[in-house]
Design a protein around this nucleic acid. Sequence first.
DNA 1: TCAGATATGATACCTAGTATCACTTTCTCA
DNA 2: TGAGAAAGTGATACTAGGTATCATATCTGA
Lengths: 137, 137
Amino acid sequence: MLKKADILIEQMEGRGYRATPARRTVLEVISPRRGHFTAEEVCEQAKNVGRATVYRTMKLLVETGIVCRVILEDGSLHYRLSHKDHHHHLVCMACGAVRDFIDGSLEEMVKNLVTKTGFEIEGHWLEVYGRCQECRA
Amino acid sequence: MLKKADILIEQMEGRGYRATPARRTVLEVISPRRGHFTAEEVCEQAKNVGRATVYRTMKLLVETGIVCRVILEDGSLHYRLSHKDHHHHLVCMACGAVRDFIDGSLEEMVKNLVTKTGFEIEGHWLEVYGRCQECRA
DNA sequence: TCAGATATGATACCTAGTATCACTTTCTCA
DNA sequence: TGAGAAAGTGATACTAGGTATCATATCTGA
């Protein structure tokens, strides 16, 4: 049976990137993660991978869509495994849990902005912050 | 006649902060600005104000609602004068122009998320990136 | 098999922002 | 009015997060 990390490695190879030991290690660190994490956390856990390589790999993984960036309320950059194409994050500020959501009305709104403002819209970024059901209890 | 910077100074005083020369200088640098700018740019222009003080002042201005934070697509933190209570930004990636907008459907969507997910929602952050009418021409 | 392309890790470096601290300014209230 | 407290300042050193460089290692395919 293929491990999750193997599936991700295959995704990378499919995009024309080499499946190197360093990248494998990074993916093995990342793949069991549920919530969001920083590049620095990956550095700590992937001990035999250089810091520069971890940062390079994270950038690569974002490009290939394997992970996505999560910006917390304080502006700090985190990452998490990506499961869908375009989606947004609902981040619990207490436990760090992240839920994805897609919202059609938002895409609609963006379209309206085009006609209202004359802007050509290339992208948008939405993060919602709060406390999840468990943390409220 | 009151300059724009004076009005902003008054706003600060109204919140219980002192109107010091350093803060005046920062506000004079900021007040004629149209688009977004970084704290570092303010440092360069407000030459006789210490860097630490500029950063402290920027933080203060965000707290008092006089400026708001703008996060660019690359994750870097900029600021701009704030004109409304809660709003979002439409940022031109070519010329740096920023347009504010308010969107009721978004607030609606956030409310829907509460019932769908059980999250208690504390805040959200939306930035839209594109090219303005002038830059497209 | 070997030349070129890719990837790596160590290191130095850079940028943005914060902590510290001695000092100055301003406020306030007796 | 003036003394003490509170608030603010700037220089400096420091930290975190990330990038540039470069010699070396590894892979790939003609």
